[in-house]
Design a protein around this nucleic acid. Structure first.
Lengths: 153, 153
DNA sequence: GTCTGCATTGGCAGATTATCCCAATCCTTC
DNA sequence: GAAGGATTGGGATAATCTGCCAATGCAGAC
């Protein structure tokens, strides 16, 4: 796997800032002409450095007013238990992020919902129905101070 | 502010899944012709429902191997203190997410770094140098089980 | 049931952009 | 200094965007 040079990093930074810049603009920014710039972008895509392109949607504008962080502890932590939990989580659209954690909690989830009633429904009908969960602890976010997609390159 | 109808929601779902679908593909998916579909997308952009477009980059591919969640408590929670903290956080690229929380912790941050040394440098040179912080507690993520940008529409 | 007015749609055409080929250039290695 | 490989830049074609305009659908009034 070849390393990323300075131009590649500029390309990544620009595309993270605006995933729809034209090749001409992008080429100008990174100091190349269109052709090699285009080829580098395609290469970054095929190498999996750029995984995909997406539109960011305003959470409040579509009525999702509740953000919750959930700490979860499993009864057992064997690989099979972890995989079963991961598979279940992956199916649910309300779960935006899930991390396997060090320390005394196994998982940390970020979940969004329209309101508290919808969140309660998620807990009752989905999360608490999973087998093998020892404890669930919800922390509510009052506001989103920062939300960035752009990794520092 | 007009409500989002079923077609708008389909458009949002499609653009979240692929921010670079062509208008033709998008129009086919939502059951419109290109013109009205294009107009709806522009409207969603100007109304701020679609905030921007971005390329998603693989964290490991660019050498960011450490993900940390940091719980922070401030000495005081007056609005001015909160604002000062928010401004500082916003400048740092390592901080991808920051939430003002309920309960006994004021803030929850998600931070990425190349390795533990880089994370230590972030703590020493940036975070701990802020005034007004009462406590900092780091929890490390062993793996990212799920990471989604797509809000359920 | 029919008419009117409004909002939305679909088709079309010019302008913009992506994409690929090929020759020229640069850099490394011998 | 020469040879080889990788990368670049320009240009041509195909694909796509984007705005205009007439046509369509729909709701309310009579």
């Amino acid at each position: 796997m070849p390393e990323l040079d300075a131009i590649d990093r500029k390309i990544l930074a620009s595309l993270q800032a605006d995933g729809r810049t034209t090749m001409q603009e992008l080429a100008d920014k990174v100091g190349l002409s269109v052709s090699p710039c285009h080829r580098r972008v395609k290469l970054l895509e095929s190498r999996g450095v750029i995984t995909r392109y997406t539109a960011l949607v305003d959470q409040k504008a579509i009525g999702l007013h509740v953000s919750v962080f959930i700490s979860i502890k499993l009864v057992r932590q064997k690989e099979e238990d972890l995989n079963r939990f991961a598979r279940a989580i992956s199916k649910w659209d309300e779960v935006l992020e899930c991390y396997l954690m060090t320390g005394n909690r196994d998982y940390l989830l970020r979940v969004v919902a329209a309101d508290l009633a919808a969140y309660e429904a998620f807990l009752k009908n989905k999360l608490t129905r999973l087998d093998g969960i020892a404890s669930i602890e919800s922390s509510f976010a009052l506001s989103q101070v920062k939300y960035s997609i752009a990794l520092p390159v």
